[in-house]
Design a protein around this nucleic acid. Structure first.
Lengths: 135, 135
DNA sequence: ATAATTGCAAATGCTTTGCTTGTGA
DNA sequence: TCACAAGCAAAGCATTTGCAATTAT
């Protein structure tokens, strides 16, 4: 059983056949698929799963903290399994490839900035857009 | 004449009556209005300007580098006049208020991170979401 | 003069939802 | 059993676009 299914159980999220297939597809994804792409992947396992169910499921998973939603440039929401350790993203503007990275120093500074402005940091979004340096 | 109109002229963007009104409304805005809100403000000056024109104009201005588009949480794009000096945003999750800030140190680190990953930083998005600390 | 711009309404693309039937615990 | 979930098609929302009429240079 994959981690997403485990989290569903521990959080009391009912596991249907469709949700299991979607959970497995998400677990197997190392990229950050949008709903349409995810729908294609689950349909390879079960052709009858509708896109409405995929939409409802990723929303449910997101609200349960099981997956994370990202609104990168491009108009469509993209999802990834919630990681153990928070990370941010660098998006290759040419290929669309997404590279994950962790930078504690930036995280610290973000907290400091918020604090200085009189706020408690609740959430943040950091996206870098870049082009590959050829060497 | 406001800065947006000046930039239109210097960039060869044709200035119609409607665009002048929209330019003035944007110039006068200290918040980050969405298209609907901008349309309302523009309509106080000229009731006949359609929302399609507002959409077309902010898109044109954005593509010309005259205004900046932001996709904060909430689904609708929001706009501000392009600032002289780059800044990022902290969004009050309770009131929706937006506070602008500059942090050179974070900017530097972003460049370093991108470089370390083999990328040249072209663009970035940093949004902090926080709640006011009551004192 | 004439290429660009506008207003309107229709179309788009992503996402949500009402309703009926099916199903997990 | 029976509250909840799925499938389908229709609706919703922000945004874009085709077209005929209008306008800036």
């Amino acid at each position: 059983m994959n981690k997403i299914e485990e989290k569903c159980i521990s959080k009391g999220v009912r596991l249907t056949d469709q949700r299991k297939v979607i959970a497995e597809a998400m677990s197997a994804s190392t990229d950050h698929p949008d709903v349409d792409e995810l729908h294609k992947r689950v349909n390879k396992v079960d052709k009858k799963i509708s896109i409405a169910t995929v939409y409802r499921t990723v929303k449910l998973f997101e609200e349960s903290g099981i997956v994370e939603k990202h609104d990168f440039k491009g108009g469509k929401a993209r999802y990834e399994e919630s990681p153990d350790e928070h990370h941010d993203h660098l998006i290759d503007i040419n290929s669309g490839e997404i590279i994950e990275f962790v930078d504690k120093e930036i995280e610290n500074l973000q907290n400091k900035v918020a604090e200085k402005l009189g706020y408690k940091l609740v959430d943040h979004k950091l996206e870098l857009y870049g082009s590959k340096i050829k060497k």
